[in-house]
Design a binder for these strands. Sequence first.
DNA 1: TCTGGGGTCCTAGGACCC
DNA 2: TCTGGGGTCCTAGGACCC
Length: 403
Amino acid sequence: MTTSAGAPVATPILHVDMDAFYASVATRDRPELHDVPVIVGGGYRGVILSANYHARAFGVRSGMPSTRARRLCPHAVSVPADHDLFSTVSAAVVETFRRVTPQVEVVSLDEAFLDVRGSTRRLGGPATIAERLRATIHDEQGITCSVGVAASVSVAKLASRRAKPDGVVVVPPEAITSFLHPLDVGELYGVGEKTQAMLHRLGLVTVGDVAHTPLRTLQRAVGAGLGSQLHELAWGTDRREITPGRVSVFGMGGDPDKSMGAQETFGRDIDDREVVLREVLKLTAKVASRMRVAGVAGRTVSLTVRFADFTTITRARTMGESTDVTQEIYRTAVALYDALGLQRARLRLVGVRVEGLVPRTTVHRQLLLGEREHGWSDADRAVDRATRRFGGAAVQPASLLGR
DNA sequence: TCTGGGGTCCTAGGACCC
DNA sequence: TCTGGGGTCCTAGGACCC
């Protein structure tokens, strides 16, 4: 943590956040869309992925239901999401980061933390590095980003938000509390809509209010864990180090997944068991295939059901042994569904998730008495091979065909 | 045409074992 | 027939993040 002169780097953490990433990438090569409101993704019954700043001026935000976005900004141009392109551009940007330092923690396709304390001798101070990064990304990718620079991960993240769009904000150590304390509590990591409302009800509106609330009081209000987290964040004292490759966004590095799942919102609400279970099978096949590709198996199957009124329930069952076999997961999911005893309730969404994943090599499965040696597992592997060769739609369970 | 899809973590209660 | 505490596993729901 020293420069060539031996002085410690006071603000070694950079948080780089691409500006309206999906919208910027989607319109990058379409100059006719640069000066009009643009919305990315979000079809029927969906939410939008992103919106450019022209659309945001009308109140449109990422994650907003497309119906609402459309109402706020009826003349916006809608463009489809191109996930392959997003991934390609994102990977290129991460490569740019890695030319600065190997200490890169990728948070998502459009966001990363960099610890540059080992790079200042070669590249200059953190603020200089931030500006050079922004220039490079703009030159190479044709999109802009904003950078927050601070001593800690949490402050850097808040600083990048303040820097948007297309800017840099440095928060030196002596300015941390004057930067943090005027912010609304909702800005803090871990404070969403519900917690924000609860804190406001208690009269805790700003980060400064939280900072000056006794820890025990805070913990009583929001729980022990979140309480101490908020207290730390409010003083900017969190010491979390960045962990390179923490999130596996590009199928490389990162922590192993603890669960894998898939869910689907129906085009219209469904009350027919046959139709629901057909979807459950499709989702199960997708999840199990991903598990086999990743070389993992899991013991707990959980089924999610969302009703027409948006209430959502989950039911889980833990099996005796871990599996990655489509039919075994499906059988469990069907048992969970039938145990719900739904009488033609209208369902909006159904989801399947497998939890407690472990490497398949650690699973020593005993063949059940009477189970054929070449059972479902071999059938699955044949499906996976065909899927690799011919694409996802090539091989499907028979009950999914001809629909 | 209100409200996606992929995840993680926390809390709380009950069962069960020692 | 009175009485505890701790630890682990499992389930359900909720909140949050990108």
